[in-house]
Amino acid sequence: MRMMKALTVAAALACVASGALADQYVRGYTRQNGTYVQPHMRTSPNGNPFDNYSTRGNVNPYTGQAGTHNPYAVPSAPSVPYVGVPSVRTPQAPCYGYGCR
């Protein structure tokens, strides 16, 4: 009976683990700039930069290509300027002595 319970627990854990590591199919689409992106497979998004096919040290099992992205790189600033609330000047404290502007 213990053996059956252990096998059931192991099977359940295997199902959960395989679901967490599942790949996703991405349909082809056209970007705003008109570039068509071919359909492809990707790892499930999870916020971890180390387990993606494109990360340095990993190999894409579908294409055989080695990853090139540095997982430690700091993300660059957005290329589109932020258009939102207009900047507001910070009020300065009054100056009552030498060196006031």
Rank of each mutant, 00 (worst) to 15 (best):
M1K: 13
M3V: 03
M3Q: 07
M3C: 04
M4I: 12
M4L: 14
A6H: 13
L7T: 12
T8Y: 08
T8L: 14
T8S: 12
T8E: 13
T8H: 07
V9E: 12
A11K: 09
A12C: 15
A12E: 13
A12S: 14
A12R: 09
L13M: 15
L13N: 13
L13V: 15
A14K: 07
C15I: 12
C15V: 13
C15E: 08
V16S: 07
V16C: 09
V16H: 04
A17T: 04
A17W: 03
A17D: 02
S18Q: 13
G19S: 11
A22I: 03
A22S: 09
A22F: 01
A22M: 09
A22W: 03
D23H: 12
V26T: 10
V26F: 04
R27A: 10
R27P: 03
G28C: 07
G28H: 09
Y29N: 07
R31Q: 11
R31P: 02
Q32N: 15
N33M: 06
N33A: 06
G34P: 06
T35F: 02
V37K: 05
Q38N: 13
Q38D: 14
P39Q: 09
H40I: 03
H40M: 11
M41Q: 14
M41H: 13
R42K: 03
R42T: 00
S44Y: 00
S44N: 08
P45D: 00
N46C: 03
G47P: 01
G47K: 00
N48W: 03
N48I: 03
P49L: 00
P49N: 01
F50Y: 12
F50L: 09
F50S: 04
D51K: 00
N52V: 02
N52Y: 05
N52T: 06
Y53V: 01
Y53I: 00
S54F: 06
S54I: 04
S54R: 10
S54W: 09
T55L: 11
R56T: 11
G57A: 02
N58R: 02
V59F: 02
V59R: 09
N60V: 02
P61F: 02
P61S: 05
P61H: 05
Y62G: 04
T63E: 04
T63P: 03
G64Q: 11
G64P: 14
G64V: 11
G64L: 10
Q65E: 13
G67N: 07
G67D: 09
G67C: 06
H69T: 11
H69K: 12
H69P: 00
H69R: 13
H69G: 03
H69E: 11
N70L: 02
P71I: 08
P71K: 04
Y72L: 13
Y72Q: 10
Y72D: 15
A73C: 04
A73Q: 14
P75F: 01
A77K: 15
A77G: 13
A77E: 15
S79P: 04
S79R: 14
Y82K: 07
Y82Q: 09
V83I: 08
G84D: 10
G84Y: 08
S87F: 10
S87Q: 12
S87Y: 14
V88A: 14
R89M: 10
T90Q: 13
P91Y: 05
P91C: 10
Q92M: 14
Q92A: 15
Q92Y: 12
A93H: 10
A93T: 10
A93K: 12
P94D: 10
P94K: 04
C95N: 08
Y96C: 11
G97D: 07
G97M: 01
Y98K: 05
Y98W: 06
G99C: 01
G99E: 06
G99Y: 04
C100Q: 06
C100S: 06
